[in-house]
């Protein structure tokens, strides 16, 4: 199972790299700076701490009760799990959403503008039952909160 997963990740990586090269060659990558900024290593990391390091430069978080995660207790369909992360911590710069038991835990990173409230929602996939982790960066520090979501049908399989 484990080697199989690795093989898959490798395949995925090489496929992605291939298409990127083709696209770059054809001059299709219009906003190149945007794509270059995509933290690839973080999104490929299999451990939540590594993923955070890739995005924020640090993997240590402080638990905080000022972060609220709105997600269902039981998700009937793991392919669509609505998640809202909000925080009352002042000066929030970015919010990351992770599904801790996914093959690659980091799902999304939202970088907020100055006038944007620390309140973002999206729908994520969850392979199996696990915690949804909301990580908030404010004033150079990382804060985290988690909520367990039970998944009855996984969203990553075929």
């Amino acid at each position: 199972m484990n080697t199989d997963m690795k093989r898959r990740v490798f395949l995925k990586g090489s496929l992605a790299a291939g298409t990127m090269a083709v696209a770059a060659g054809a001059g299709l990558l219009a906003p190149q700076a945007v794509l270059a900024a995509w933290p690839k290593s973080a999104f490929k990391s299999k451990a939540p701490a590594d993923a955070l390091k890739g995005v924020f430069g640090s993997g240590t978080t402080q638990a905080s009760d000022k972060i609220k995660i709105k997600a269902p207790d039981i998700a009937e369909n793991g392919a669509v799990v609505p998640v809202t992360v909000s925080s009352s911590i002042p000066g929030v710069e970015s919010i990351a959403i992770m599904a801790s038991n996914n093959p690659t835990p980091l799902v999304a990173v939202f970088k907020l503008g100055k006038s944007t409230a620390a309140d973002v929602s999206c729908r994520i996939k969850m392979g199996k039952t696990g915690d949804v982790v909301g990580v908030v960066k404010a004033g150079g520090k990382l804060y985290a909160a988690r909520k367990s979501v039970k998944v009855t049908i996984g969203g990553c399989g075929g």
């Binding site: 995509w38 990173v109 939202f110 970088k111 006038s115 944007t116 729908r123 996939k125």
Partner: peptide, 29 residues
């Protein structure tokens, strides 16, 4: 990337872990 006029209010990096036909909501002042 979400912009209000020329002002960037949200810039999100996603992985394939976001659901099909993604939904996103946020607030700004």
């Amino acid at each position: 990337v979400a912009k209000h006029g020329d002002n960037e209010v949200l810039n999100a990096d996603w992985s394939g872990g976001v659901s099909k036909n993604p939904y996103m909501a946020f607030k700004f002042s």
